[in-house]
Design a protein around this nucleic acid. Structure first.
Length: 140
DNA sequence: GCCAACGTTGGC
DNA sequence: GCCAACGTTGGC
């Protein structure tokens, strides 16, 4: 039973398309303790929805955890910031916009809405499945 | 240890 | 470009 997550990125910095092209990425640069705590709870194979903030404000794709949290090699080890690695699963057939998410009553409580600045957050299975359905995307 | 000032994120 | 939310810093 995998856990479900949502991560945010500014597509100008790194987008889901970049992830498809690169085949995998190190999810680094997280400098928030709650986000770090969430990252450390990610397990191998957990599914991760990738959200494009600022310019698109829409969910772009689905990825999964390919390596669990380890210390950021580019950071002072004393800070103990963590990174994970993810690989792409597939782009959403239909991007799911923030406006659509906000218009869906059952999604009103997800952290994306309630805590807009958090960049790594857990999703319930219900919220995850709802979002995937809104993206007209199925996991094979 | 409190809290005002300041910086950053991210929606609008 | 503005501003709300919120984290961090620094004076006291």
């Amino acid at each position: 039973m995998p856990n479900y997550w949502l991560v945010k990125t500014e597509p100008g910095e790194f987008s889901f398309e970049d992830l498809i092209r690169d085949k995998k990425t190190v999810w680094d640069g997280v400098r928030n303790h709650q986000a770090k705590k969430n990252m450390m709870q990610m397990a191998l194979g957990d599914l991760v929805l990738v959200y494009h903030s600022v310019t698109q404000k829409a969910l772009a794709g689905l990825a999964k955890v390919s390596k669990t949290a380890y210390p950021d090699p580019n950071d002072n080890p004393q800070n103990n910031w963590q990174v994970v690695e993810i690989v792409p699963v597939k782009a959403l057939t239909q991007p799911v916009s923030l406006a659509d998410i906000k218009a869906t009553p059952s999604l009103a409580d997800i952290a994306l809405i309630k805590q807009s600045r958090l960049s790594v957050m857990p999703l319930s299975a219900e919220a995850f499945n709802t979002l995937l359905a809104m993206g007209q995307t199925q996991i094979k």
